[in-house]
């Protein structure tokens, strides 16, 4: 197990370095620079700016400097948001993104598994057909439609909930629901599929023959096996929930880190984009690692190999 962990950790770090490197050079290859404004800057000002932000060095030199900086946990100064370091920007935005994403993940897993179980335990009944029809709609409705619709219905027409911004508890209801919708539907479908598959397995008949109560059978003999595909889905889903909040942040006017990515890319704010990418990549790799480990724990049939 320790060996497996070490190798996995090493691969994760390698991937992380690869992502940082690729993004660093791609950003620099792109035409345009952070100081191309509406107005051309006087040459001497631009020279000074470039020196101040370490852009006058050769590219490999800048790359090494960036890695060294990263090693110290410093994401550098923002090129366009003067007076702010990327660390500060991330520190204000990340908690918002994480809260919304985390709540959405919670909703997606609990509601998704419950719905999938309900449908899967009674396959091809009317309940099943209806629930699965609903999930189909959930998957087909993208967040860019769901989020504004929710605002329109609950914020504008009914006036029950705030239409955007941060503040009270009520501000944290609509955004996670909108974000979670397609994921809830997907988890419900996955759960339903694997529950139906598990129902036909032999060990269930044994459990039934022993006269175990149905609730115990569900908890001990169906769910652990049926949830495996859901667990492997959760890694990429957690990552997608976190990054997918870009749209949610825009619709609900939330100060998360997603908007930095969009702004930063348009303004060629190298350090800001790099900073957000670094944070995202770290979180995603972490999620994937956790999911892999959970997977190994849950299914004894999986042998450790790399």
């Amino acid at each position: 197990m320790a060996r497996y962990l070490l190798i996995r950790l090493g691969l994760t770090l390698l991937t992380f370095w690869l992502i940082v490197t690729v993004v660093f050079f791609l950003m620099r290859l792109a035409p345009g620079g952070p100081f191309d404004g509406e107005r051309r800057l006087p040459p001497e000002v631009e020279t000074n700016l470039r020196a101040a932000y370490n852009l006058d060095q050769s590219l490999p030199r800048q790359y090494i400097d960036y890695l060294a900086m990263l090693g110290r946990g410093d994401l550098g100064p923002s090129f366009r948001q003067k007076d702010f370091s990327v660390n500060e920007l991330v520190a204000t935005g990340l908690p918002v993104s994480l809260t919304i994403g985390g709540l959405a993940l919670l909703i997606a897993t609990t509601v998704g598994i419950a719905v999938g179980l309900k449908a899967g335990l009674a396959p091809n009944t009317r309940t099943d057909t209806w629930l699965m029809g609903l999930t189909n709609i959930g998957i087909a409705l993208p967040t860019i439609i769901v989020a504004p619709l929710l605002v329109l219905i609950f914020g504008v027409a009914l006036g029950w909930l705030p239409t955007g911004g941060l503040g009270s508890f009520n501000h944290y209801i609509l955004p996670p629901i909108a974000l979670a919708m397609p994921f809830t539907a997907a988890i419900a479908r996955l759960t339903r599929g694997s529950v139906v598959e598990t129902l036909s397995e032999g060990h269930l008949q044994t459990a039934r023959a022993k006269g175990l109560p149905e609730s115990l059978i569900i908890r001990r003999h169906i769910l652990p096996i049926a949830l495996l595909p859901v667990v492997s889905y959760l890694g990429p889903a957690a990552a997608a929930l976190l990054t997918g909040s870009v749209v949610i942040e825009q619709v609900f006017e939330l100060p998360g880190i997603g908007r930095y990515l969009v702004q930063g890319a348009l303004n060629r704010d190298y350090t800001l984009v790099m900073g957000v990418v670094v944070v995202y990549a770290a979180l995603i790799l972490l999620f994937n690692l956790l999911v892999d480990l959970a997977y190994v724990r849950m299914d004894p049939r999986i042998r450790l190999q790399t």
Partner: peptide
């Protein structure tokens, strides 16, 4: 596959 879509799009 592991890279989130939005990152690729932004790049």
């Amino acid at each position: 596959y592991a890279l989130p879509f939005i990152l690729i799009v932004i790049l």
